[in-house]
Design a binder for these strands. Structure first.
Lengths: 209, 209
DNA sequence: CTATAATGCGAGCATTCACTCGCTTTTCCT
DNA sequence: AGGAAAAGCGAGTGAATGCTCGCATTATAG
């Protein structure tokens, strides 16, 4: 016993063809979320758009939620890539430079795929709750590490509190900038927002004198 | 013609009893959203919890969305009440005092009904999009009015930009404070967060010298 | 070439759920 | 009292949708 029955039931994409199927499904899910919204998305529709049958869909994704989670993961990974790279890049810069860079990146990150980001933020019910928390934790710990390294440039303040406030503020400005008012954003306006936000955060962190 | 047929089809609660029914339905909707989540909520369930029949439900609410919208409205009104009152109260205070008060109120507002707030923020698909925008606009314009009145205490900065950044930052800190980490918040911690956030915002607004 | 596994198919099942309709009960008004 | 309007009822309907299952097609190995 314990011989695997020949019918491998679920998941696992070993051949070439199946990898393509999985990709097509994730891609189709993202497109549908953006173009038709979460409510209109259905597994049948996703399969149709992916050019795949529902049966195949369920060979790789145990549920609709899993499909959405995959989209969220992919998107989060893109953003985390940007964030990780940037924090490495600014590791030795003084906080003035680094903060400005981080604010810029926050906005860029929200601009990777604004429509998808909006749908994920506004329309997805419960899914990926854990993913979002893990995401936040990583951002928090990366930023906190930078702050630790540059403690000397900063006033006396609890690093967790500082990180929490700075990350919250920067993320909120970036989020609202990209998602509110759609694309009424001139480049000049964006630069102003980056400058002012960076000024606020730096002023907050540096010694008051 | 144009004689109103005796069957008034929808809406409108004129008698006493019906007012109670409407209230019970809204209340039941809120309770279900909090206790079972948006996904599990159904009109049948809402009617059942309200102690009312589905038929009656549809006499007052044309759709499930309308029910959820009513809950959102009620909650928004509670918050806006707080915010309006506070901005009147602080109208003549200097920005140090006023900002501190506003940060406190932001957190209080999120604490009115944190569970409901979380559900409305995280689980409600599209509904009340307009409501949320109107809500944000009002907050923005109230805060902007305060800033205008106290321009002399501030450095030279575009008021819309300043309002946008301050409101975003304060809202985000309040939101994350109340919703993340659940209730691991000691009162001392909250005070620290209020102090630091207020410091950040005030430092941002005041003349740099 | 043949056997076996991997991948793909899609009609249909089971369920859920928003909403309707014909009717009864309660309230109001004279 | 009595009639009309308002309020309430809840089984039933129709449509949508997540997912299964038995079978077909394609790839791999011997």
């Amino acid at each position: 016993m314990a011989r695997k029955p020949p019918t491998k039931p679920r998941k696992n994409a070993s051949q070439e063809r199946s990898r393509a199927t999985v990709d097509a499904l994730v891609e189709a899910t993202a497109r549908i979320l953006v173009r038709e919204g979460f409510e209109k998305s259905s597994t049948n529709r996703i399969a149709e758009v992916a050019g795949v049958s529902v049966g195949s869909l369920y060979q790789y994704f145990p549920s609709k939620e899993a499909l959405v989670a995959a989209v969220i993961d992919r998107h989060n990974e893109e953003i985390m890539g940007l964030v990780r790279a940037t924090l490495t890049e600014v590791a030795d810069m003084p906080i003035e430079k680094a903060v400005r860079r981080l604010v810029t990146v926050a906005i860029d990150a929200h601009r990777i795929n604004p429509e998808l980001h909006r749908v994920l933020a506004e329309q997805i019910p419960r899914a990926g709750k854990l993913d979002v928390e893990a995401f936040n934790r990583e951002v928090h710990s990366l930023v906190r590490a930078y702050f630790e390294r540059h403690r000397k440039e900063m006033r006396k303040i609890d690093l967790d509190v500082a990180t929490f406030i700075c990350v919250s503020a920067i993320e909120a400005v970036a989020h609202n900038t990209v998602l509110n008012e759609a694309e009424m954003l001139s480049e000049k306006m964006v630069r102003t927002l980056v400058d002012e936000t960076a000024r606020m955060v730096v002023g907050f962190l540096r010694p008051s004198a």
